[in-house]
Design a binder for these strands. Structure first.
Lengths: 161, 161
DNA sequence: CATAATTGTTTCATCATATAACAATATATC
DNA sequence: GATATATTGTTATATGATGAAACAATTATG
């Protein structure tokens, strides 16, 4: 029992007014919807672990390259260093990561996983693989995923410079 | 003068610890970054018109299919109807769109563009085309854009059902 | 040495989004 | 047809993500 109420001001011949885009052909819109969908799955996947996307990314980076300072990691992830503080506080409070005072620069902190954090990252990685596998299935295979990553990379990587 | 402070707990042979994903191979992450980049360009494009993505989408939908009610449009866009109210208030206050009381259902509102709104949408569409063209350039041509839209669609369109 | 820049931090404002409740109206059920 | 249930638009409110500004401690630069 839904349906529009009236119907009005159309173009001359058909029913499509001028060159107004359909939502499905707007790259930004479709990107956004897809991102929301993927994050939805991600968030549900990590609900039990109480891990949010930003926390996942920080742990992954620390695990792969320990010893970096906050600003470095924040910048890599496009997070303002001011907002990184609370994020890191949370990871430290949970005993997953820690700040060590860097010897060379007394201002900065060197970020590391705790032993528990390392075990956590192992589980996290496994959960992530399932999530990623689910996406691959939807996309229609690993090649499709690779193609998507490539296209997204073209948007991100700066052409000049 | 940057650089990590120390370096620790690696895996056996190389330097990569276990199977921890690199950020660049995480679909969700790259999707997010790409979406932010595209929105950045979009927002800058429409800064002078003081138009935000959500407003753009609402105007585009009303322009293409006038007469729909709020809940219908909100649902199409994945916006909670509660949050749609203020959005529509803004468009109405600016004289771009209007609520007409639907004759058939006294609860609902039939949404339409004003004449000024129609002119606004024309300009908006033109600005959007430039934005989209910029993306196409980055992607490497219209075929790449089509491919991207297709892949994103695979994530969005529900397989079963 | 004096000045400027960096690092981590706190505080604050803004925006997007979700939930719950409500009145008015419409629909369904008996 | 009366009563219960659902829908529509709305308000109020909570939460999370994000950005800007300022600050002390420290380091780099002229």
């Amino acid at each position: 029992m839904a349906g529009s109420t009236d119907g009005e001001k159309r173009n001359h011949t058909s029913g499509v007014p001028a060159g107004i885009p359909e939502m499905g052909e707007i790259v930004g819109y479709k990107l956004r919807r897809a991102q929301l969908f993927v994050f939805q799955d991600f968030i549900e996947s990590f609900a039990k672990m109480k891990l949010r996307p930003a926390e996942f990314s920080v742990l992954a980076i620390i695990a792969r390259t320990p010893g970096q300072k906050q600003t470095e990691i924040a910048e890599q992830l496009g997070i303002k260093r001011a907002n990184f503080v609370a994020l890191m506080d949370g990871l430290e409070r949970r005993g997953l990561a820690e700040r060590r005072k860097a010897a060379t620069d007394k201002r900065s902190h060197s970020l590391h996983l705790t032993p528990e954090g390392a075990r956590f990252v192992d589980k996290m990685t496994s959960v992530w693989r399932n999530h990623e596998e689910r996406l691959i299935e939807r996309l229609g295979g690993p090649e499709a995923r690779a193609a998507l990553l490539d296209l997204l990379g073209r948007l991100l990587d700066d052409p000049e410079r």
